[in-house]
Computed example of a mutant assay.
Amino acid sequence: MKRRSSSGSRFLWWLLWFSLALLQVWNHYRDKPPSLPPPKETRFVKLTDVRLVEDASNDGDSFKIEHGGSAHVLRLYFVDCPEKRQYALVKNRLKDQAAYFGGLSIEQTLALGHEAKVFTERLLNEQPFTIQTRWERVFDSARSYALVFFPDGEELSEKLVRAGLCRIHTKGTWMPDGRREYDFEDHLRLLEREAKAAHRGAWGIPK
């Protein structure tokens, strides 16, 4: 009787161990749930009927807009366009921007910054656009980070990267359609490689 009891105990332990191992294998290979959406406080506010406001500080990635009778200064997520003028506070940033594009001169970098400003202003003046923002402040300034979408579905950072007029270098974010920050940045990197291969914008300037 004792031998049967011992054999039965071993069988139960073996069955328990096998069940636990099977559960671990199932848990490893089962379909994982989709990523949770960002918290409510990080969700975007959509602004329509927006227009660009002419301002001396406007450039390729930062500009003033008017919406609902109020003016706001916005700064793009993900990208950084070259400076359009040189002054003490941007001296090192200009050097970094010049180096990013393979060793441009400061004069070439400034010219590229002006080209980016014209590019962005032309798009915002000639096409309707929609703003997506969380009113997240840029450091301690009055500017807010934002995304700018056009009727073709593209965001302004995509168009700037595709044209070779910016570097991928600033704060990113979850996208309003649920794409993760790093997935969208990987997408921008792909567009940047295409711009390099086609020698667009900065990638076509003789060094």
Results as ranks from 00 to 15, higher is better:
H169E: 14
E158T: 07
F63P: 07
E83C: 01
L160R: 04
E194K: 14
W174T: 13
L36T: 07
R122A: 14
S144K: 14
V118D: 13
R3C: 01
P128G: 12
P128Q: 12
E185L: 11
S105T: 15
T109M: 10
R122W: 12
K64G: 01
S141H: 09
M175C: 05
F119N: 03
P38A: 09
P176T: 06
F129W: 09
L76G: 07
Y145T: 10
N92F: 08
A21I: 13
I168L: 12
P206H: 07
K46W: 00
Q108I: 03
W13C: 11
D186T: 12
G102M: 10
K84H: 12
S35D: 10
E115I: 03
E107K: 13
G69K: 06
P151G: 03
L89E: 15
Q132H: 15
L190M: 05
T109N: 06
R93W: 11
Y77G: 10
R75M: 08
D49F: 00
F63H: 02
R193N: 13
D55T: 01
L36R: 08
E158W: 09
G172H: 11
A198M: 05
H72M: 11
T42C: 01
T42H: 03
F184M: 06
E121A: 06
H28P: 00
F184V: 07
I205A: 08
T173H: 13
R10S: 12
F78Y: 15
I131R: 09
L15F: 12
A111H: 09
K117F: 05
P176H: 04
W203G: 07
A142W: 10
G153I: 05
P176A: 09
G103H: 10
L147I: 14
R122P: 02
A116W: 10
Y87L: 08
V161Y: 03
P176W: 02
L74V: 10
I65C: 06
G164W: 01
H114S: 07
G68A: 06
T109C: 13
A21N: 09
L23C: 12
L190P: 00
S57W: 00
P34Y: 00
A198I: 01
E115S: 15
F44I: 01
T120E: 11
R30I: 02
P34K: 03
P38H: 00
R143F: 05
W14S: 13
E121P: 05
N125W: 06
L104Q: 11
Y100H: 10
E155I: 13
N92L: 08
K32P: 00
F44T: 01
E83L: 03
R200W: 02
S7A: 13
S70P: 01
V53S: 00
F184Y: 15
R143H: 14
E83Q: 08
L123D: 08
H169L: 13
W14D: 09
L123R: 13
S144Q: 15
V53E: 08
E115G: 03
Y29F: 14
E66L: 10
G60D: 07
W203I: 05
G172Y: 04
T133V: 11
E107F: 07
L112Y: 11
L36P: 00
Q132R: 14
L52N: 02
F44H: 02
D177T: 03
L74C: 04
L16E: 08
L104N: 09
A99N: 14
A202G: 08
G69Q: 06
L124T: 04
R10G: 11
V138R: 03
W174G: 02
